[in-house]
Write a protein that binds this DNA or RNA. Structure first.
Lengths: 211, 211
DNA sequence: TGTCCGATCTGGACAGTGCTTAGATAGAAG
DNA sequence: CTTCTATCTAAGCACTGTCCAGATCGGACA
């Protein structure tokens, strides 16, 4: 009878359940963390039977893949956003690193899923190196711009890998906020974070090509 | 009747079940990976009822803590072992980093558990900074030896954190071996690994105190 | 317009999980 | 030899991922 409700997203079979499930999963992730993310809970959150997801995803892993993909897109956008805000190229890499770690702090559960699903497949996350606008490409292109044209590609790739490893390690460690030396390091302004990043040679363009 | 069997570790109630459970867990971890590590599977592997572990560990998490602790001890030993093998202090940090990544490659499942159990507690892994011989202390002390006495403690700490983050990030990435640029990077000799480490300023003592 | 088809969703079931409780067992202490 | 206490088992609860038979409904085709 009340089919006229404003946002009663339940017209026929469900409209776009696949999308709704991914959204529901992210909602649970942000609200209760990764340990609460069961397939049944997602179905419950979306107001659907426990077996419904299986008509859109092969299994739970495939749902998580879709969730992770959304995460990679968001991370890529967050990293791209700082590009116009920094005047000198010298500080750009550092700010991209800050944006990366910030994302992992703002969406810790999502960030975890992004790497966990990839780990189960023994391959780098798909969304990470998507097309031209993937987050990985962004870093590599930035290195390419910062470095002179005389720097060979292999060094650019090496630098990108090193920077990515450092940022990822930093992001993981930032979760352990109670630890003495790391306390207050990742909260508030990113001063300490920038200090650690500056200790990592990769984020100083002059070190792109070490002797 | 056959109580005279050589290694029939089942004398009374079980002897030392706690230890046996941790060993069984690690065995499962190395054989089938983290996803197969259920408490019931551990009990099965140890030849004991599913409820038996609860007399030695509050819950599954506490068992994993014990497993992780064994892992941290092994990692610390692995990192310490290279100390006598490198003549110059300059290369020592790099070799410690290599030892760290190597451990994560040799025991990927155990390595994952070591960080996962810590993450649930929002604090750095306990075993990591144990006593004087913890792995973290080893790195800090090495930095202390490499750097001159004029380098303040805060910079040593900063360098240790940065190095740890970089090594951890590298260890995590080394699992994604299928990725183009990383392919062959972590296998065989550690040449590529050393190259990436050298790109990370932290592993070059001269960079301990950046301007 | 009416009928059927195929995609979508439900209800129920199965094995496996973490964990609890009540009771059995056996080593040690009296 | 009895008793006590730590250890272990059996049975069961709520939950999970996954599959299956059947219900439902939108759209295509007549």
């Amino acid at each position: 009878m009340s089919t006229a409700a404003v946002a009663d997203i339940r017209p026929y079979h469900h409209g776009d359940l696949r999308r709704a499930l991914v959204d529901a999963a992210i909602r649970i992730l942000e609200r209760e963390g990764p340990s609460a993310l069961s397939l049944r809970a997602v179905a419950r959150e979306a107001g659907v039977s426990p077996a419904a997801p299986y008509h859109h995803f092969k299994d739970k892993g495939e749902l998580l893949d879709a969730v992770a993909h959304v995460g990679w897109e968001a991370l890529g956008e967050g990293m791209s956003a700082v590009q116009g805000e920094v005047p000198d190229l010298s500080g750009l890499m550092t700010e991209i690193g800050v944006a990366y770690v910030r994302f992992s702090q703002d969406h810790p559960a999502l960030y975890r899923v992004m790497y966990d699903t990839a780990r189960d497949k023994d391959s780098l996350p798909e969304g990470m190196q998507d097309k031209e606008d993937g987050a990985y490409c962004l870093v590599r292109n930035t290195f390419r711009s910062v470095a002179g044209p005389d720097v060979p590609d292999v060094d650019i790739e090496l630098a990108t890998i090193a920077a990515w490893c450092a940022a990822h390690g930093l992001a993981e460690m930032s979760g352990f906020a109670q630890f003495g030396p790391l306390k207050d390091a990742f909260g508030g302004d990113a001063g300490f974070l920038r200090a650690v990043l500056s200790h990592l040679g990769m984020f100083q363009p002059k070190l792109v090509k070490p002797t």
